[in-house]
């Protein structure tokens, strides 16, 4: 490859591409550090001349972003834990137990992966409203507590665990419950990590459902909050972007810490296909 394509040219092309892909995020970070005057200047500055960290304090006065962040953290963490519990239990049953109707139930679980969530929103909205759960944490959390994707991911992993492990545990007189808690779960940390990253991001980034069922500032989540920022009758772009940066920060952290986990989760589907 080297002979035809000198390394320097290769890296220059890569750097230009990387800059282009990252540009919207870099722009958001740069603008979030500018003063109000600098942010609305034309021609625009690419790099802020002074680092104005006060924006990250002032944005809390513009919209109740602290409440949004707190709400979304709560919802995301509870959904993450819930999905880990329900998916790992269901996955264990599918991977390691024999029971009546196993194939049929597995097909039913897989079918939920094919039904796009958008198709079910109208009845789900009516259900949640019927239970008087609009504008509540339950309404944001409960519909997402089970995940067929997570069940599938963990089932694949559980099935790859060595059979000797299960035979040895059986010999020692362990039942399914003991095997599940003290052998399978501790050995499955990588797959559980993948599902944790996924389910957290899924809830942190959720847009349509929170938009439908929340309507007070007290219950709004970050993604709705951030889209409210653009409607503010304001030219304070620096504050708006300070808000955006606060909202995308956990996602960027997840990427830096969990890229491997994310890649594993995505390729589970791709390698099947």
């Amino acid at each position: 490859m080297r002979r035809y394509f000198p390394a320097t040219v290769h890296y220059i092309v890569l750097t230009i591409c990387a800059f282009a892909v990252m540009y919207p995020v870099l722009y958001a970070i740069a603008t979030s550090l500018m003063s109000m005057g600098e942010a609305s200047m034309y021609p625009p500055h690419v790099i802020p001349h002074h680092f104005n960290l006060r924006n990250f304090i002032d944005v809390f006065d513009l919209v109740p972003i602290a409440t949004f962040i707190g709400n979304t953290f709560l919802v995301s963490i509870v959904v993450m834990l819930g999905q880990l519990i329900t998916s790992s239990m269901a996955a264990y049953a599918f991977a390691r137990m024999n029971f009546k109707g196993k194939n049929l139930l597995f097909a039913a679980f897989m079918a939920t992966m094919m039904i796009p969530w958008e198709v079910t929103i109208i009845p789900n909205y009516l259900t949640i409203r019927g239970w008087d759960w609009l504008d509540s944490y339950q309404g944001l959390i409960v519909p997402f507590l089970a995940a067929s994707f997570g069940t599938f991911l963990l089932r694949q992993f559980f099935m790859q665990l060595p059979t000797e492990l299960f035979e040895a545990a059986r010999m020692d007189g362990c039942g399914h419950v003991r095997i599940f808690f003290s052998h399978v779960l501790p050995l499955s940390r990588p797959a559980i990590g993948t599902l944790a990253v996924y389910s957290f991001l899924q809830m942190w980034n959720a847009y349509l459902w929170p938009l439908l069922i929340t309507n007070s500032d007290r219950m709004r989540t970050v993604q709705i909050g951030v889209s409210m920022l653009q409607h503010q009758e304001t030219t304070q772009w620096n504050l708006v972007f300070a808000g955006i940066v606060l909202v995308i920060l956990p996602s960027l952290l997840m990427l830096a810490l969990g890229l491997k986990q994310l890649v594993r989760g995505m390729t589970v589907g791709a390698l099947k296909g």
């Binding site: 990387a18 892909v21 980034n205 847009y207 993604q223 955006i244 995308i248 996602s251 960027l252 990427l255």
Partner: peptide, 12 residues
């Protein structure tokens, strides 16, 4: 860098 957009939500 090229994986970056995957973690960003449609909202932000």
């Amino acid at each position: 860098a090229f994986s970056l957009p995957v973690v960003l939500s449609v909202g932000s």
